[in-house]
Amino acid sequence: MNWLIAIFQTMLFVLLSPLLAGWIKWCKCYLQNRKAPSLLQPYRDLLKLTHKQPVVSEQASWLFVTAPYIIFSATVLAASVVPLIAVNLPTSASADVIVMVGFFAFARFFLALAGLDIGTAFGGMGSSREMTISSLAEPAMLMAIFTLTMTASTTNLSGAIAHVLNDGMVLRPSFVFALFALILVAIAETGRVPVDNPATHLELTMIHEAMILEYSGRHLALIEWASQLKLMLYGVLITNIFFPWGIAEDFTGKALGYGLLAIMGKLALLAVFLAVAETLVAKMRLFRVQEYLSFAYLLGLLGMLSHIILEASR
């Protein structure tokens, strides 16, 4: 039964992620005085792509063709670890938060290799930049997460969230730092403004898009879906770790329903913030990203130190 709910939750994750992407787009359009596409547009795009015949470069090897499947399934696995509507699910135990970061690294590894596989300048550029940004973002993210796991004294995400729930509303300085660090990292890792612009195809500024330039058809659909999933995953991480209220602690239908409603509400609100931020902030130069990410790292470190100095039991 628990496993069924876990699988159901993962399915929900996968199915809802295009909706979140659509909602962000909708908000952004509204803020920028444009006519918004339907909320379901990302679903239509994905469906259209799966029906198209994929065109693959003559240069491409088996790695290029297999990479989308690997990227997608690694992201789905990462999603299965994160509690969406309920805590204490068995999938959270099979992999903790460090493994989740590992899944992201796995997906990124293959995405970067796929970018290099076709042997164009764009692909190499995208891979190089992606690996640079991620290698700076990963320590910052782990710093923020370690703060949390040390407070909860578990690296199990579900356990950590349950710990925050049981503690009730306590304002911890370390959590404030960690929250901001995680938000900054999430923006960098999901390729949003100001680090990367998902809507651009201008060669000098592309990062994520440069790597997947050669993909088409179902391969592109998988990669797009994986990146939407990743966006939602970071959103869920931020909301459920720092504002977990509403998440189901037992597996009754009612609790799960409330959990679903709560997370959808929280994500919708977070998406509005993201859209406002993306409308207000301009994209920064590539070599400013390091300062941005080292700031995130610093916040994570401050969070960790304030946990150790101010909050730890002795």
């Binding site: 799966t50 029906h51 198209k52 015949q53 994929p54 065109v55 693959v56 470069s57 003559e58 240069q59 063709v65 499947y69 997608f72 399934s73 076709i118 042997g119 164009t120 330039l213 050669e214 058809g217 179902r218 659909a221 998988l222």
Partner: peptide, 19 residues
Amino acid sequence: CYWYLRRNPLTVMRRAETW
């Protein structure tokens, strides 16, 4: 996802020059 995406025989991969 492999099974789901590859079941349609019309969408067999086509090779072309790199862009």
